[in-house]
Design a protein around this nucleic acid. Structure first.
Lengths: 222, 222
DNA sequence: AGAATTCAATCAAACGTTTGAAAGGTCAAA
DNA sequence: TTTGACCTTTCAAACGTTTGATTGAATTCT
């Protein structure tokens, strides 16, 4: 029973061997994919022995799940911090919506700190990996539901309507694509990469889009 | 100990070994990723010997590039067929824009025929594979540039403006996400998968979004 | 016949995992 | 305080399997 976690620190711990393995695996899994990552490379980056992976996580697959759990734990606090305030009026909901999209996009696109975590999650999703379940429950499910509620309050639509759910996904899709298709975007834009400066320009466009969409829906009577 | 193969078959199409390998690789690469796909599985699906891959394409990496080229050739005709008509007025541009998004989204999300091709391309993009160059030149570059032109005509903005380019990517991102995040979307929506029926609902939302965004931009004076 | 292609068999390298021993820590008994 | 048994953790080495690629003979086509 060698399971222990440090509650004072957020994210994977670089101190213990298990924490170092999770941190290393999270980064390499995200960058190269699960199958393309060898246990030897993970152990080397974590500065430990290969056998530690089997010892602590039962194997490579177990380490993958531990990475998803570590991400969920790390992102949980961030989600909760954004869930503190609940809007009561449509205008308040609109402001909150714009703020949330700003934060979400900045973290997803621009943040260098979040880059490995985001890469891991996106790869897990597009690969249909076993981490989807954990990630969905910890992050996507609650976030999407909440965004639907706020959007419904802002526009007067039904938060449980199919079209509203799809719409919220389309907004998220706008953001996610700039991470997935970074190689394409940078090439077309003439950028070398998407740093904070480029991310700011993108966020500006996405916020303008959302503003226009809210205005268009608000104009329609219930 | 072998099974006889009738070469004088009257099968549906007499496919060459190279063609069968490309078709098989395209499908498996798209579904499982390049590294996770073994040459043995490709050869088995293509009903040929492993050595054929090295013989025809010089190796696994060569087959990957051949897949990208095959996709580019296949998609080139489709792109050209949509590029036939050039709009002259803003309203004409708006109609064309909506039509193009409809076609693009239907092919990307709903089409069962295109599914393997789309999966391969998206994986190549997110993996930063060597096929990006071919795919960009054959499909993404021309398409994006053209969409920028049409959008600019519809709204009176500058087709070379940075914000316009980013905006067009955001529209594409809306579509792509429903392919990338199919596992997430179906789970939240309570669907089993995204077939033609679900795709139609999504396209409807995306077209409404685009309509609203055009109206909002059009309203602003030049 | 001669070139082009496909085949079974085989190669070295890399893979994830396992092994048994060594190292580190804890704690009750001496 | 010292001792020694016990448990956890780390380590080098090796395991069997699978990988992409290659070989030379067999087959097919021109």
């Amino acid at each position: 029973m060698g399971e222990e976690r440090d509650k004072t620190d957020s994210g994977p711990r670089p101190e213990s061997t298990a924490g170092a393995l999770i941190a290393a695996a999270l980064e390499i899994f995200g960058r190269k994919g699960f199958d393309s990552t060898s246990t030897r490379e993970i152990a080397a980056v974590a500065k430990t022995n290969i056998a530690s992976i089997s010892y602590h996580f039962g194997g490579k697959a177990g380490l993958r799940i531990a990475c998803a759990e570590a991400f969920a734990a790390h992102i949980g606090a961030l989600i909760n911090s954004l869930t503190a305030h609940e809007p009561t009026s449509p205008t308040e909901a609109e402001d909150l919506l714009l703020t949330l999209i700003d934060r979400l996009a900045s973290h997803l696109i621009g943040s260098a700190e979040m880059r490995p975590l985001v890469a891991f999650v996106l790869r897990e999703i597009s690969d249909g990996g076993p981490g989807i379940d954990i990630i969905y429950k910890a992050m996507i499910g609650p976030s999407h539901q909440r965004l639907c509620r706020i959007w419904a309050l802002a526009t007067g639509e039904d938060p449980d309507a199919e079209a509203v759910k799809i719409f919220v996904f389309s907004i998220i899709g706008q953001i996610v694509y700039f991470r997935i298709g970074t190689a394409i975007v940078t090439r077309r834009m003439g950028w070398t990469d998407i740093g904070p400066g480029e991310a700011a320009k993108i966020v500006q466009v996405l916020k303008a889009n959302l503003r226009d969409l809210i205005a268009a829906r608000r104009r329609l009577p219930k």
